[in-house]
C-alpha cells in the first residue's frame, strides 16, 4: 500500500513539476493544395523544436509520422503546433493521411556544428 501510494505520489509530483522548457525554436510549415511548404525541414540534433503548421486548405488533414511518433489533426484554416525532438541525426518522413500521395515531407535532423545557431 505504502509503496503503491508512493508511486502515485511520485508521478503526481513529476507531473506538477513538468513545465515547458524555456526557448524552443519554431519552424513554420504551410499546407496548401495538399502540399507541405517547405517539404523539407532541417533541424538540429538533440534539440526539441516546435513545428508551426498552417493549414490553408478548406479541408482537414492529419499529420502522421511513425518515425517521429506524431499524429495530429490539422484543422482547415487553422494553425497547429507539433513538438518534436530531441532527435538523433537522420531523416524522418511525415505525410498527410487524407492525401498521402501529395502531402508528404521530411524532417532532416543534422548533427550540430560548433557555432551554428539555426539550420533551417
Amino acid at each position: 500500500m505504502t509503496l503503491r501510494v508512493f508511486v502515485l505520489l511520485v508521478l503526481s509530483i513529476v507531473a506538477l513539476a513538468d513545465t515547458a522548457s524555456a526557448a524552443v525554436s519554431e519552424y513554420s510549415i504551410q499546407l496548401k493544395d495538399h502540399l507541405f511548404y517547405p517539404s523539407t525541414i532541417k533541424i538540429p540534433a538533440g534539440k526539441k523544436v516546435k513545428l508551426v503548421i498552417q493549414n490553408l486548405d478548406d479541408t482537414p488533414e492529419e499529420f502522421d509520422s511513425f518515425s517521429l511518433n506524431r499524429e495530429k489533426v490539422l484543422f482547415p484554416k487553422q494553425t497547429s503546433f507539433i513538438y518534436i525532438g530531441p532527435l538523433k541525426p537522420g531523416v524522418y518522413d511525415f505525410f498527410g493521411e487524407y492525401n498521402p500521395n501529395t502531402a508528404r515531407g521530411k524532417v532532416v535532423v543534422l548533427k550540430q556544428t560548433k557555432g551554428a545557431t539555426h539550420v533551417n
Partner: peptide, 18 residues
C-alpha cells in the same frame, strides 16, 4: 526528473498493490 522516474520504476517492481 530522471531520479523520480527511476524511483517510480523501482516502486512498481518491488511493490504489491490491491
Amino acid at each position: 526528473y530522471h531520479a523520480a522516474a527511476i524511483f517510480l520504476l523501482m516502486g512498481i517492481v518491488v511493490s504489491k498493490s490491491w
